[in-house]
């Protein structure tokens, strides 16, 4: 029972971490390797706003999210747009920006002492005999709400439909009058906000550490690669597979192996089935 509940929680955490990454990749084929950095940055900005500027917690969160979105959009608009289409340069450039943010934070901000964000609601509740704190429940609820909102946004609004069109066929979308650069900026902004949301819900569970930047990136990449890059259903399914696999390994092998599971999942998936669980056949041919 404990495994089931913690498995679900862990899987939803992974979904949260991966949503932004998969959205950006799905829409603009841009592997945003700065995803983890944005995650840490959002958390750190909230901490700053609460503890240094003195805003109240909800307002700080809102401001931090908006800033993260702007940073993501600016990153695309000023830097990444110049290397669009060169897959390797995209990776290297976004990874380098991410590194600069993470290592810059490590040097200039996040050092000495611990940095924590308060839980939204303190306390815990007993679920089917397992004690779960409220924050973890909020994580699950937030995950569900986000996925639902995103789904509504993509299938219900004009902007969302534009993103979907881009995701399916960029050139066809362009001929229909969808501005691909604008859409890519929007997707980067939303993706960054999603990274921020993930940070704000997940960080109260622990403290803000820069290493989380790398961990979140690895997890997001793992989930997306296993699920099939750019496929949302695949990402969610993969998050559950990896999520449960991690809880099981933690239980029976030790916490050390948690990240090993994710890395092995990537390697095995790419070698056995390069397009991922839900990847498309066409992509497969381009790739292998």
């Amino acid at each position: 029972m404990e495994i089931l509940i913690y498995g679900i929680i862990n899987s939803v955490q992974l979904v949260l971490m991966a949503l932004g990454f998969t959205l950006v990749y799905g829409v603009s084929r841009l592997p945003n390797f700065a995803h983890g950095a944005l995650y840490v940055l959002a958390g750190y900005m909230t901490w700053l706003l609460v503890n240094r500027v003195g805003l109240n917690y909800p307002l700080s969160m809102a401001v931090a999210l908006v800033l993260t979105g702007l940073i993501g959009a600016a990153m695309y608009h000023f830097i990444l747009v110049r290397v669009r289409g060169m897959a390797i340069s995209e990776i290297i450039a976004s990874y380098a920006i991410g590194l600069a943010i993470i290592e810059g934070l490590r040097w200039g901000g996040l050092k000495g002492g611990t940095f924590t964000l308060p839980s939204f609601v303190e306390g815990s509740v007993s679920l089917l005999g397992v004690s779960v704190d409220y924050q973890r429940l909020i994580v699950v609820v937030a995950g569900l709400i986000l996925v639902a909102l995103l789904w509504l946004f993509v299938s219900g609004t004009k902007l969302g439909l534009g993103l979907k069109g881009m995701a399916q066929d960029e050139q066809a979308a362009m001929t229909l009058g969808i501005d691909s650069d604008r859409m890519a900026v929007v997707s980067m902004a939303i993706g960054s906000v999603l990274a921020g949301v993930a940070a704000l819900v997940l960080l109260p569970l622990g403290s803000i550490v820069v290493e989380a930047g790398y961990r979140v990136l690895i997890m997001a990449v793992a989930v997306c690669v296993v699920g099939g890059l750019g496929s949302w259903n695949g990402a969610i399914l993969a998050a559950f597979i990896i999520g449960f696999a991690q809880i099981l390994t933690e239980r029976y092998l030790g916490a050390h192996y948690q990240i090993v599971v994710a890395l092995l999942a990537i390697i095995i998936t790419l070698v056995m089935r390069p397009s991922g669980l839900f990847g498309r056949q066409k992509e497969l041919e381009e790739r292998v």
Partner: peptide
Amino acid sequence: LPCLPLRGVYFAIVSLMFPLLAPRIIEA
């Protein structure tokens, strides 16, 4: 060797994973 059929981004991602994986295994 198993990763060689992969191209571009995919090879880059996998090759990035190995050096991350190795210390964890040695540690564990």
